[in-house]
Design a protein around this nucleic acid. Structure first.
Length: 147
DNA sequence: GCCAACGTTGGC
DNA sequence: GCCAACGTTGGC
C-alpha cells in the first residue's frame, strides 16, 4: 500500500492511537476491489512511501478489519467526497490497518527495480500507479530478506 | 517543475 | 461505444 509521507507516513501510523488507521480516500476501482474482496484479516502489507525523496518500502502493517464502506465518500466536507456513492450501495471501501514494524532500512524503488528476481512485481512494472497492489508470498519473502 | 502513463468524463 | 479532453499519480 502506498502513501505519500508528507500526507501520511509510517511514523504517522506509528503515532496513531492503537497504531491503527482506516485506509480511506482511495478512489480507484482496482484498489477498491482489492480492499473489498481480497485483503483478509491478519494479512500483512508492505507500507510504501511514494512521491518523496526516496520512494520505497519502509515497513509492515497488518489488516485488522476487512473491507467495509468508506464513509468519507458520504461527507460533503471531506476531501474525498463522492456524490455518486450511495449509502445503500456504497461505491468505495476501506480496510483498517495496524502498524507492525519498520524495516531496518528503506528498500528503495530503485533497488527493487534492479532485482531481476522481482521483474514480475506489480510495483516495478512500467506505468503502474495503483496505490494498492498484490504481492506473492515468494516476492514478500525475497524483499524481506533484503532488509 | 516536467511529463509519461494512466483513469475518468462526457459529447456525439 | 468511441475517443478527445481533462485530471491525477508519481518518478525523476
Amino acid at each position: 500500500m502506498k502513501s505519500e509521507p508528507d500526507t501520511f507516513s509510517i511514523d504517522d501510523l506509528y503515532n496513531r492511537p492503537e497504531r491503527t488507521e482506516p485506509w480511506d480516500g482511495v478512489r480507484n476501482y482496482q484498489a477498491r476491489n482489492m480492499m473489498r474482496d481480497s485483503m483478509k484479516l491478519g494479512d500483512w502489507v508492505f507500507f510504501y512511501h511514494s512521491n518523496c525523496s526516496e520512494p520505497g518500502i519502509v515497513g509492515i502493517m497488518e489488516v485488522i478489519k476487512e473491507g467495509y464502506p468508506d464513509i468519507t465518500a458520504f461527507d460533503p466536507d471531506d476531501k474525498h467526497f463522492d456524490p455518486k456513492s450511495d449509502l445503500n450501495q456504497p461505491r468505495w471501501y476501506r480496510v483498517d490497518v495496524r502498524y507492525i514494524r519498520h524495516l531496518s532500512r528503506t528498500i528503495s524503488l530503485k533497488e527493487l527495480k534492479d532485482k531481476t528476481e522481482l521483474a514480475d512485481l506489480a510495483l516495478v512494472k512500467r506505468g503502474n500507479r495503483l496505490s494498492i497492489m498484490p504481492i506473492s508470498q515468494w516476492q514478500w519473502d525475497f524483499i524481506l530478506a533484503l532488509a
